[in-house]
């Protein structure tokens, strides 16, 4: 029955700082069990949105329900049931890892056992280490552990992999998937498209406080009407001009020996390779590139924004 009630419902959320409209009329809803991602450049309004949902900031306009509660009025009831990883926060320098978990567990009515969390986050060997002595990645993992210490129904993760190395980032992704596998809902923000593409069931693209797109990663990519790129290395003196005339080819770029043929259609690669072969051109390192969410994102934010992001 709870399946039918969305975990999060947001209607025309608005929040300004002085004259700056950080979030400007955003509406969406998140289903139970979903991994929902919010992507956008720095300053797009992600943190403002997520913190309005967590009850850490209060909106100027619009309606927000999280687990059926109003974060403003029912803040305490809500905080019992959600887990929060903030983009910016800290613990006292001299607090030890185990003390932090033990302490935060004591704040909740029904805490989870925090010892297995240490293991799941691979910080068991750091349990007696002080916060100030942890690396960036270890701090991040500790904050995720703290976000899970009350066995929450809904977990908010704001920029969970910023500053992590690629390996740590991937193990974070596994962890998020594992959280969802336990039936929880995950709401995360990121400015890495790759992360949203690999992790999220649905992605909301936000820029300048407004929704630019909201869909599954696959549909968003499809929506770009997939431009395909073929890249290869040709011999010196190769004349790329004839390729332009081929059906489906939109653009040919030549940079030294490196050639990029961009175009559309399922047969593009066959056409190009046949043409090269027929002309007796020798080529190597041929590969193709599909557009990914990064391309979608660049296309969308270029349309929506004055400058595509940096404010």
């Amino acid at each position: 029955m709870s399946e039918r009630v969305p975990a999060i419902e947001v209607d025309a959320l608005a929040k300004s700082y002085g004259r700056l409209k950080a979030v400007d009329g955003v509406s969406f809803s998140v289903g139970v069990g979903e991994i929902f991602g919010m992507v956008g450049p720095n300053g797009a309004g992600k943190t403002t949105t997520i913190e309005c949902l967590e009850g850490m900031r209060f909106p100027d306009g619009g309606a927000v329900r999280v687990l059926g509660l109003d974060p403003r009025k029912d803040g305490n009831a809500l905080r019992e049931r959600i887990g929060v990883q903030l983009q910016q926060s800290a613990l006292p320098d001299d607090m030890k890892v185990w003390e932090a978990l033990d302490l935060f567990a004591s704040y909740y009515r029904r805490p989870a056992d925090w010892k297995p969390l240490l293991e799941r986050l691979e910080i068991t060997d750091k349990r007696n280490t002080r916060f100030s002595k942890l690396s960036g990645g270890q701090k991040q993992r500790l904050f995720i552990a703290l976000a899970l210490v009350n066995d929450p129904e809904l977990v908010f993760l704001d920029e969970l992999t910023t500053g992590l190395d690629p390996h740590a980032r991937r193990s974070m992704w596994d962890l998020v998937r594992a959280i969802r596998e336990r039936g929880k809902t995950v709401f995360l923000t990121t400015h890495y498209m790759e992360e949203a593409e690999h992790l999220c069931d649905r992605v909301l693209v936000i820029d300048h406080g407004r929704i630019v797109a909201l869909d599954t990663p696959a549909s968003l990519v499809r929506g770009l009407k997939g431009e395909l790129r073929i890249l290869f290395t040709a011999e010196p003196g190769f004349d790329a001009a004839p390729l332009r005339a081929l059906p489906g080819v939109a653009r040919v770029e030549k940079n030294g020996n490196k050639v990029i043929v961009a175009g559309q259609g399922d047969r593009l690669i066959v056409v190009v390779v046949n043409a090269l072969d027929a002309a007796g051109v020798r080529f190597r390192d041929l590969r193709t590139e599909q557009p990914d969410l990064e391309d979608v994102f660049l296309a969308l934010t270029a349309e929506s924004g004055l400058d595509g992001g940096a404010r």
Binding site: M56, R79, V84, L86, S89, F104, Y107
Partner: peptide
């Protein structure tokens, strides 16, 4: 310094 570092913020996100 708890305020500046964001320790108070982190506590505020709990039912404490």
């Amino acid at each position: 310094s708890y305020r500046e570092k964001g320790v108070l913020r982190r506590y505020r996100a709990t039912p404490l």
